[in-house]
């Protein structure tokens, strides 16, 4: 994802603000990292450029 997606991204559960942590960035795109919701104490992973914003109860199950 590009950093400007942060303009609209919120926690899917509480709709609160997210804190972005970048682990790897390439060509202006965040390849890996995470989005942290302070209110829910929940971390949403960014893997292979795609943020996984599924609520925690849906994230662990296979698609």
């Amino acid at each position: 994802m590009k950093a400007d997606l942060m303009e609209i991204l919120v926690c899917p559960v509480c709709k609160g603000e997210l804190q972005l942590t970048v682990d790897e960035e390439r060509d202006g795109e965040i390849v890996s990292g995470s989005l942290f919701c302070v209110r829910c104490n929940e971390r949403y992973p960014i893997e292979d450029t795609i943020p996984n914003m599924l609520p925690p109860d849906m994230r662990s199950q296979p698609a």
Partner: peptide, 18 residues
């Protein structure tokens, strides 16, 4: 283009984003 995994009932976007 941007992509995000998400649940249609609980979208990870603020109000009036689109």
């Amino acid at each position: 283009l941007a992509f995000a995994a998400g649940d249609a009932y609980r979208l990870p976007f603020s109000d009036a984003s689109f």
